[in-house]
Design a protein around this nucleic acid. Structure first.
Length: 590
DNA sequence: GCCGTTTTCGGCCCGACTGTTTTCAGTCG
């Protein structure tokens, strides 16, 4: 694990332990903020910490003198004494109790103090004994809810992949739109921000018939439990169908929580902004409002002195940003990572900008589409270019092509292209980057290809230094256009490589190689923070679907959301370039 | 613990829902 990730985990645990010890909530917030900042940072802080460079460390948001000193201590001794000291006072199992939905620090501390509950197992046994019911404010209903929450947690430990949550949300939106009285329906929350995994789904609706909406929502097919059903908020647990055969080996939670918020149509924009978050972005937005003598809540932006009066802005999200003298911020960018400091409009990449897919497989290797089927789909999507990039010879399991098969395929693709109207199809390969960093075909054959996507597939547990060296070697190869799914991670399943991303980006800029955002929701690799660093360095980015079957083309939305989280503009994305610009660049490497 | 164009101290976002009370504490987002 990298220094930043390790530090992020430690600060997150410090925050939890402080909370359980009843510490000042602002100190808890500060530790959490430092943890999030460290998690999102691309630049490795270890060298700065080793050099005891407090000044450089504290340039990062949320890292002050205190946190900097702890980072220095971590770099020097491998541990933070505050954490170790807290850990002697707070049992490890108590943190798990705290993670049960509905149980907060106050209740957990009470259980710990009065009943010596130090783990989920303790909690279960005390509930069975009936002792928990003796605690203050602990009625039968609360205990039943805790029992259900433990069960929910045990069956749904992991978060849901973006690509699995989105179709569920879309189905529910469609259903809610069919209910009498619905004016608008839209998902918000982490799903709208395009986070790689989703904890729960937030749905907003404006309606003339709130009762009908609430009744429809809480009785929707798949509801396993109703958690809340109020005037403006309803909350359900929803069973996730596992009909998806393709990913039957994927550990998918059995249920997900879905919240429905019924909001007045006139405050739609304020509500959408509020429930889209992120929490940090909202806090920053509210602070900006307060500074300008205004106050912001989910009903609108108001004059501070007249919070009950007519709102200054409320109908649309844009109106709120504009009234605050801020550039409107696209949902995926709302992370409180500098987006409110933007002084001019950022032409963020959109779905409609994508005019080419440069990483697709056919039946020649492990794809399910023929060349013609894939080409037809690409043309229907108004693409101008499609690259066929089947696997290379070492990927035996994926039916990788030996040199003679590849040469035949190149000719077949060029012939097909001559007879196919309305789309330029080029011959490429997704060439394995072997463990030593060399490529899986000789240089002559690589030069015969119109495009080379070099990707790591095996040896994904290598040490960071070795991984960096391996990927750098591939980037420096003169025939390579794109570094495909650079880390090889699979979300919630495989960590993949942990190369020094800053070094890779610098090399990619120097050697004019594009780094790929692989749009498959299992990969999203590059991830959002890597994209942001690459964008800042002026690196070219590719957004590809790694197509194996027809529905994979639809995954492009997840790649776009990830790109937007990294502030990518169409000018820096080779898939958004027009035909001539793209092909001039491709040929520049031949 | 962090932060600052009202700045080195004194704040730190704000409302809904539940379950337990009988006016509100705790949790969540």
């Amino acid at each position: 694990m990298s220094f930043n990730q390790n530090a992020s985990l430690i600060f997150s645990r410090i925050a939890q332990m402080l909370e359980l010890l009843g510490s000042d909530r602002f100190r808890v917030n500060a530790a959490n903020k430092a943890s999030r900042e460290l998690k999102a940072l691309t630049a490795d802080l270890e060298p700065l910490a080793r050099a005891e460079d407090t000044k450089a460390l504290t340039t990062h948001d949320g890292i002050g003198k205190g946190t900097a000193a702890k980072l220095i201590e971590l770099a020097q001794s491998g541990t933070i004494s505050e954490h170790d000291e807290l850990a002697t006072r707070v049992p490890a199992g108590l943190m798990e109790v705290l993670s049960i939905p509905g149980l907060g620090p106050k209740t957990v501390k009470l259980m710990w103090d009065d009943l010596k509950i130090e783990s989920i197992a303790d909690l279960k046994s005390e509930i069975d004994k009936g002792t928990v019911a003796d605690l203050p404010r602990m009625g039968a209903k609360t205990i039943e809810n805790i029992t259900a929450a433990i069960q929910f947690m045990e069956s749904s430990g992991d978060r849901l992949h973006l690509g699995l949550a989105m179709p569920i949300a879309n189905r529910i939106i469609e259903y809610m739109q069919s209910i009498q009285g619905t004016i608008k329906a839209q998902y918000a929350g982490s799903l709208r921000r395009g986070e790689e995994t989703i904890g729960d789904i937030d749905i907003l609706i404006a309606t003339t018939d709130p009762d009908a909406a609430r009744d429809a929502f809480t009785t929707i097919q798949g509801v396993t439990r109703i958690l809340a059903s109020g005037e403006t908020k309803s909350s359900i647990r929803y069973a996730i169908s596992t009909e998806n055969q393709r990913f039957k080996d994927l550990a998918v939670p059995a249920e997900i929580q879905i919240d429905l918020r019924i909001v007045p149509d006139e405050s739609w924009g304020a509500a959408l902004a509020y429930f889209t978050g992120s929490k940090d972005h909202n806090v920053a937005l509210r602070k900006a409002a307060l500074k300008q003598g205004m106050t912001l809540n989910e009903y609108g932006l108001f004059q501070s002195k007249d919070p009950e009066g007519t709102p200054i802005a409320c109908h649309t999200e844009e109106a709120i940003y504009i009234a605050l003298n801020l550039e409107p911020v696209a949902p995926p960018m709302r992370q409180d990572r500098g987006e409110l400091a933007l002084k001019e409009h950022l032409p963020l990449i959109e779905l409609t900008d994508i005019k080419a897919d440069l990483h697709t497989h056919t039946t020649d290797s492990d794809g399910k589409l023929s060349l013609e089927e894939s080409a037809t789909i690409a043309r229907d999507r108004d693409f101008h270019t499609l690259a066929i990039t089947d696997h290379s010879q070492s990927s035996a399991i994926a039916n990788g092509l030996k040199p003679d098969r590849l040469r035949k395929q190149i000719k077949a693709i060029h012939d097909f292209n001559n007879s196919f109207e309305g789309l330029h199809i080029i011959a490429g390969s997704e060439v394995d980057i072997l463990v030593d960093g060399s490529l899986d075909y000789d240089d002559d054959l690589l030069n015969e290809l119109d495009i080379v996507v070099a990707s790591p597939h095996a040896g994904l547990r290598a040490k960071p230094k070795q991984a960096t060296k391996r990927l750098l070697k591939a980037i420096c190869h003169p025939s390579v256009h794109i570094l495909g799914h650079p880390t090889g991670r699979l979300i919630q399943r495989r960590a993949g490589l942990e190369p020094d991303i800053t070094e890779l980006i610098a090399a990619a800029v120097e050697h004019d190689v594009a780094l790929e955002i692989n749009s498959h929701w299992m990969r999203l690799d590059l991830r959002d923070t890597h994209v942001r660093a690459a964008v800042e360095a002026g690196c070219k980015i590719a957004i590809n679907c790694d197509v194996h079957n027809a529905s994979d083309y639809d995954n492009i939305i997840y790649g776009i959301l990830t790109a937007q989280r990294g502030w990518l503009t169409p000018d820096q994305c080779i898939n958004a370039w027009d035909h001539d610009r793209l092909h001039t660049w491709l040929k520049s490497k031949r």
